[in-house]
Nucleic acid binder design. Structure first.
Lengths: 180, 180, 180, 180
DNA sequence: TTTT
DNA sequence: TTTT
């Protein structure tokens, strides 16, 4: 249940191939960066200006699997979700904050999706509202990786349960501290 | 002009009285924190849980003046805007990032607004898209203040004019105190 | 699954007490009209103008019960939903079309809701995405009523199944032809 | 100024080439139908079902010119706008109502736009909020055409001024009764 | 880092 | 009437 409205709508292209990881529960987590941009003319010089905004989008469970499988660098997508700001500790021990969009719906907007569309995926919309805890095959847990200086923050501790869309499985604890 | 869609819609209550500052240009800048929350029952224990999300919202120019004048701690508002992540330097010299919602529209959702509603303000919606250069009065520029440990970042320098909604005219100086 | 996005967001006041009816399946259906308005100054005469738009909103099942129980004339609400245009036959046998917003989420925006808030309803948000087919007690079917010149159309025939949010119960046929 | 929020967001394909007409003021008006669809499985039979919703979208002025020039049957677009229900008289003298989305923003979502992109149009987003009353050249008024049995209504009388986005030019009266 |  |  919600008190208030916390809604984000994005249409943009993703900057890199998505990264999918798995939670101990088996649920997938996929992160992408989505670019939107604004262009305008400088009022004084008349010079064209452009500013690109990068949005960290995180998908869970079924949406994460779809995102991980079908999106790739350059894909144009529609994303609907909510804002969540996570607190984490920098290597200097200081608190950092990262704001992400937790996706609740995603649609691919690219035309004919090349080779990505075999296998029964019918290029429609995916809504987390009817989660069908599908256990992805071959979900070998990723080996711990070096903390790669996240753009604007990253998990340092096990992430909190995300309340947005309560899932069937557990979701509780990560056994290492470099979750995704 | 935009490439892509970058849209945020919030309905929530503001956590503190707004803070309005002025840019060198004379344009107002008002910051508020807006709370939205989610509640759910823990799947295992059945315990009720709640998570409150705080959103940093920034208003510019006319909207900033209205926000500064009429909003107060606890006000319920509708906000529409876009996400912007700013980079700033922590006191340790390290880069920090703060994500804010740059408001393009705001509406007060509280009932008859007590004493805030005399003076011709008719409790409607405010949209930055049709700026009607109204000259507000008596807004002595705030004295420089100490950098008060921002929640998740803050201006370090005088804020830049926000390119989001380029204004046609100057917008620089206000000379009287009756904004609208 | 969706192809494309069909989303409506309204914030407005309802014009009359809601009307709740029940489907043969027992599911509730509540209709309200929501007003939004625009005001502006005539470019030539400078006269203030106002236009109020009325939106037909329909709630199903749990949302319908909540709407029917807690909303009343004048209530300010947030509604999110999708557009649906229904075809029906006028008494002259001609086709008519009515466009409605099928609500998927609703929040009451009024302050402490007077006496409407006892009974466990905690004035939050209601989302149809986790339907908990509650069988409303005392759902005596309303007696057929006169077709009261609907604002912009009304069901003449049994309404089609609404695919938006598939429900558990049947939903198929009404045994009278003035459903709501 | 707005009291309340009246917002529609669509992503879909247009069903036919757009039709652009011009108002006496010279402002363009373009209409398109946008399809969105939902598919699901019948709960009883398990049969796949689909429902397509058609949305009447109207663009004014600059957006209308862009829509008229660059959109074509099958184009995928993002549209943001507001709902407006118009009243008109059927040929039987009876009132009819048609609900449309008055677009305030449009973006083309198709990939490289084929031949439509020469001439300086840079395939970005178009926002009516900074109207730059461009007088389209060669805007020979369309000859009156037969009232082609509109899908769900059509103007019979001169349309009212559309208050949404007040424009600079006149906008007042049509000299024939089959406006668009 | 995308896209135009 | 689109699209898959």
């Amino acid at each position: 249940m919600a008190r208030g409205i916390n809604k984000v709508i994005l249409v943009g292209n993703i900057g890199q191939d998505p990264e999918t990881k798995f939670m101990p529960s088996g649920g997938a987590v996929t992160n992408v960066s989505v670019a939107t941009s604004e262009s305008w003319k400088d009022k004084n010089t008349g010079q064209p200006q452009e500013r690109t905004e990068w949005h960290r989008v995180v998908f869970f469970n079924r949406l994460a699997e779809i995102a991980g499988e079908y999106l790739k660098k350059g894909s144009k997508i529609y994303v609907e979700g909510s804002l969540r700001t996570r607190k984490w500790q920098g290597q200097d021990g200081q608190d950092r904050y990262t704001t992400e969009i937790v996706a609740s719906e995603m649609q691919m907007l690219d035309g004919r999706g090349g080779d990505s569309n075999q296998g029964g995926y019918d290029q429609g919309g995916y809504d987390q509202s009817q989660p069908q805890q599908r256990q992805p095959a071959a979900q070998q847990r990723q080996a711990p990786q070096q903390n790669q200086a996240p753009q604007q923050g990253g998990y340092q501790q096990a992430p909190q349960q995300q309340p947005q869309q309560p899932q069937g499985g557990g979701f509780d604890s990560f056994d290492d501290d470099i979750p995704f």
